[in-house]
Computed example of a mutant assay.
Amino acid sequence: MAETTSTVEARLADLGLRVPEVVPPVAAYQPAVVADGVVYTAGQLPLVDGELPFTGKVGAEVTAEQAHDLARQCALNCLAALKHAVGDLDRITRIAKVGGFVASDPSFTGQPKVLNGASELFGQAFGDLGQHARSAVGVAVLPLDTPVEVDVIAHFR
Score class of each variant (00 low, 15 high):
residue 39 V to R: 00
residue 33 V to S: 04
residue 75 A to T: 10
residue 41 T to D: 12
residue 83 K to A: 05
residue 53 P to A: 12
residue 56 G to S: 04
residue 41 T to S: 11
residue 75 A to N: 14
residue 79 L to P: 03
residue 87 G to K: 09
residue 46 P to M: 08
residue 73 Q to N: 12
residue 51 E to I: 07
residue 54 F to G: 05
residue 105 D to W: 02
residue 46 P to C: 09
residue 103 A to Q: 05
residue 44 Q to S: 10
residue 34 V to D: 09
residue 34 V to M: 13
residue 42 A to Q: 06
residue 50 G to D: 01
residue 114 V to P: 03
residue 26 V to N: 01
residue 54 F to W: 11
residue 107 S to K: 08
residue 74 C to M: 03
residue 86 V to G: 01
residue 98 V to E: 09
residue 107 S to D: 04
residue 63 T to Q: 12
residue 34 V to P: 00
residue 58 V to D: 00
residue 35 A to G: 13
residue 120 E to G: 06
residue 26 V to M: 03
residue 76 L to W: 11
residue 74 C to N: 11
residue 81 A to V: 12
residue 55 T to R: 10
residue 71 A to T: 05
residue 120 E to P: 06
residue 27 A to F: 01
residue 50 G to K: 03
residue 96 A to Q: 15
residue 50 G to I: 06
residue 34 V to E: 07
residue 81 A to E: 10
residue 28 A to P: 00
residue 97 K to W: 13
residue 74 C to T: 10
residue 97 K to I: 08
residue 58 V to P: 00
residue 60 A to F: 02
residue 77 N to C: 11
residue 42 A to Y: 01
residue 30 Q to V: 05
residue 43 G to L: 13
residue 100 G to A: 08
residue 77 N to I: 09
residue 36 D to Y: 08
residue 107 S to F: 05
residue 95 I to S: 10
residue 79 L to A: 13
residue 93 T to R: 15
residue 79 L to N: 07
residue 47 L to R: 02
residue 87 G to T: 07
residue 27 A to H: 00
residue 37 G to I: 11
residue 109 T to D: 07
residue 31 P to R: 02
residue 69 D to H: 15
residue 50 G to A: 08
